[in-house]
Design a protein around this nucleic acid. Structure first.
Lengths: 207, 207
DNA sequence: CTTTGCATTAACAATTTTGTTAAACAAAAA
DNA sequence: TTTTTGTTTAACAAAATTGTTAATGCAAAG
C-alpha cells in the first residue's frame, strides 16, 4: 500500500471542490479533475464510481457544512440584530471562500430539478422559522417594515448572495478588478445590514 | 424556395431561446434545439455556422432588448421613486417571461469570463450613473440611508433577480408549487420597494 | 418545361467525454 | 522471500455531441 492510500480520496475531493466551487469550472471534466489532483483519471471512478456520484458527495458534504453553520447562527440565543449580523458575515465570508458554490448549485438545479433535494437539507426546518418570533417582535416595535419571514429571508439571501452570483458581470460593468471587488463585497456587509435595519451593524459576537 | 424560407431562422432562434431562457435547459444540445424547432440539426449550422455563434446571437439580441428597456426607464424624467417602481416591475416581469435568462448569463460568464462582454452592453454608460443625482437628492433629504449608486443598484438587482436565480431551491425549501411561487414573485415587487424606501410602491406610470 | 439557386436532409467524420478492464505496482503479512 | 491485498495506471470501448458534405427538394425565373 502506498503511503497516500487513505489521503488520495480526500485529495481528489478537495481538488474537485477547488475546480467547481473556487475556480468556477462548472463543467470540469473528470480528466481536468484528475489533472488537478495529479492522479490518473480512472481513480475517480475507482473511488466514486461515476462523475455523478462524485458530484453528489461533494455537494452533500459542502452544503451540509454550510447549512450547519447557518443553522447554528440563526438558532442561537443572541439578539436578533446580532444574529443577522453574524449571518451576513458568515455568508459573505463563505462566499469569498467558495465564490462559485451558489453558482454551481443554481446551474445544477436548473439542469436537473429532480436532484434539488441534494442541495436542501433533508430535515424540514426552514431557516425562516428560526427568525419568525424575533421578526414579529421587531415589526411590532416598529423597527422594521411589516414583512413575512419568507420574504425577509429571501431579501437577506439575495443581498448576500447575488453579488457573488453575478460577480463576473458586475465586475465588468463597474470595471472592478478582483482586489477591488473583494473590498466591495466586504463593504457590502455594512450596506446590507443598513439596508435592512437602517442602522449600523453591531460588532461580531458569538454566543 | 419553401414558403417558410425566411421564417426558419427566426423559428430556430425562438425555440432555442425557449429552451435556454424559458425552460432552463442550460446545456441544450444542437439536437434538442433542432427537435424543438422541428427541423434538421444541420440547419442550425447552415444558419449559424456553429453552436457558439448561435449562442452569441441569442444573447446579444436578448440582452440588448432588456438593456434598452431598463435604460429607457432609468433615463426617463419621472420622479425617482417612480423610476425605481417601474424598474422593479419591468425586471420582475421580464424574469417571469424568461425565468432562466440570468441563470444562463451567470453560468456562461463563470465558464467563460472572456465572453462576458457579450452580456454587457458595449457602451460604457453604467446604470448606476442614471440614478446618481436622484439618489444624492434622496439621501440629502433623509429619505434613504447613505449609500453609493453602485451599492444601491446591486441591492436593487439582487432583490429583483435572486429569487428567480434560486427559483428551484427556494421553491423546494418553502414547498411552493409553480403557481404559488409566481404569486410570491409578484408580491415581491411591493416588498422590494418597501425594503428600499420604507413606503408603499406608487402605481405604475410611464412618461 | 427547364434551369437556377436557396433550403433542407441524411449520412458521415471527428472530437470529446465517460466508463471499464486487465495489468502493473507497492506495501504488509505470511 | 513469497503471497496477498488494495491502489494506480494504460489501454480500450462506448456514447454523446459537434461539424461537414453531398444529395434531394422545391419554388421562382427564364
Amino acid at each position: 500500500m502506498v503511503i497516500e492510500q487513505v489521503q488520495t480520496e480526500k485529495l481528489i475531493k478537495e481538488k474537485a471542490k477547488d475546480l467547481f466551487f473556487k475556480k468556477g469550472f462548472l463543467n470540469a471534466t473528470t480528466q481536468e479533475i484528475a489533472d488537478e489532483a495529479g492522479v490518473n483519471r480512472a481513480l475517480i471512478h475507482y473511488y466514486f464510481r461515476s462523475r455523478d456520484q462524485m458530484l453528489e458527495i461533494l455537494l452533500d458534504e459542502t452544503m451540509l457544512e454550510k447549512k450547519e453553520r447557518v443553522r447554528g447562527i440563526l438558532s442561537s440565543s443572541l439578539p436578533f440584530r446580532q444574529k443577522i449580523a453574524n449571518y451576513i458575515n458568515t455568508i459573505v465570508d463563505y462566499g469569498l471562500t467558495y465564490p462559485y458554490l451558489d453558482n454551481f448549485i443554481i446551474s445544477e438545479t436548473a439542469r436537473r430539478p429532480d436532484k434539488v433535494k441534494l442541495f436542501c437539507s433533508k430535515d424540514r426546518t426552514k431557516m425562516s422559522d428560526f427568525i419568525r418570533e424575533d421578526l414579529e417582535q421587531e415589526i411590532k416595535s416598529g423597527n422594521i417594515a411589516s414583512i413575512s419571514p419568507e420574504h425577509f429571508m429571501v431579501n437577506l439571501s439575495a443581498l448576500c448572495n447575488y453579488p457573488l452570483l453575478a460577480k463576473v458581470v458586475l465586475q465588468t460593468i463597474h470595471g472592478m478588478p478582483d482586489s477591488v471587488y473583494r473590498k466591495f463585497l466586504i463593504e457590502r456587509k455594512q450596506i446590507i445590514f443598513r439596508t435592512i435595519f437602517r442602522e449600523d451593524m453591531p460588532e461580531v459576537e458569538t454566543v
